[in-house]
């Protein structure tokens, strides 16, 4: 019986790996949840590629400012100590390795750490990339947060990506609703698994071949 973790539970697990004092960029989609569950005991500086460091949560209703939005174009706030800068500097921070952690969503991740998260269909919709490629190549550590399979049950962790790549060989760790996996020289190494899940069950929903750490830990489902 496969009982996946909720998105919030996965976000809590990602948050545990973000150290106090880190400079972090959270990608659009699931990764945004991480900001909501990082405990107040940590001081994290959030970066937004449209030119904000020290980004705070959404403003109270009525306090929105169209000139203070995040990369997903949602209204945000600026925390004390925060700063504004122009786009080129925002990407100097990103591409130049000044951001400690980038948390990204994914359509697919390969066992070599390739990431596909920008396009699935080039024929009917105009392609759009935004900052995805810069976020994937530049951060010191690239964490992927995603469901383990697609909505219709197809594996997202593959020997090779079939969708166009965002970047090659960049992913350090993957957090899914079933497992936490490191990308090692020999492919995916399972570090943590959802409660009650067997290794055979996890492998059955993963197209890449899995290896298991000696001390696989049970994930907290809450």
């Amino acid at each position: 019986m496969i009982d996946p973790l909720s998105d919030v539970a996965v976000a809590r697990r990602v948050a545990r790996d973000i150290p106090d004092g880190a400079y972090v960029n959270l990608g659009i989609g699931m990764p945004i949840l991480v900001g909501d569950v990082v405990g107040p005991d940590k001081e994290i500086v959030y970066h937004s590629e449209n030119g904000i460091l020290g980004m705070g949560p959404a403003p109270a209703p009525g306090e929105e400012d169209r000139e203070l939005i995040n990369a997903g174009k949602q209204p945000v706030t600026l925390l004390p100590g925060g700063s504004y800068f122009h786009h080129t500097d925002a990407f100097v921070m990103m591409r130049g390795g000044h951001i400690d952690i980038s948390v990204l969503g994914a359509f697919q991740v390969s066992e070599g750490g390739d990431l596909a998260n920008w396009i699935t269909d080039v024929a009917t919709m105009p392609p759009a990339v935004g900052g995805a490629m810069d976020l994937a190549v530049g951060a010191r550590r690239v964490l992927v947060m995603t469901t383990h399979t697609t909505r219709d049950g197809r594996p997202k962790l593959l020997p090779r990506c079939t969708y166009p790549l965002t970047a090659a060989g960049v992913v350090d760790r993957v957090y899914t609703d079933l497992a936490v996996l490191d990308v090692g020289p020999g492919g995916f190494v399972v570090r943590e698994m959802a409660p009650g899940l067997t290794r055979a069950e996890l492998q059955s929903v993963t197209a890449a071949r899995l290896t298991f750490a000696d001390d696989v830990v049970e994930l907290d489902p809450h």
Partner: peptide
């Protein structure tokens, strides 16, 4: 890519003939 878009304009404004970036390598 967004960072490349900005940096290409920066290069133009700075009088540079372009630049090499890891962004987009191995992609379409």
């Amino acid at each position: 890519p967004q960072g490349t878009l900005s940096e290409r304009m920066r290069a133009a404004g700075a009088g540079l003939g372009g630049f090499f970036t890891p962004t987009g390598a191995d992609t379409l």
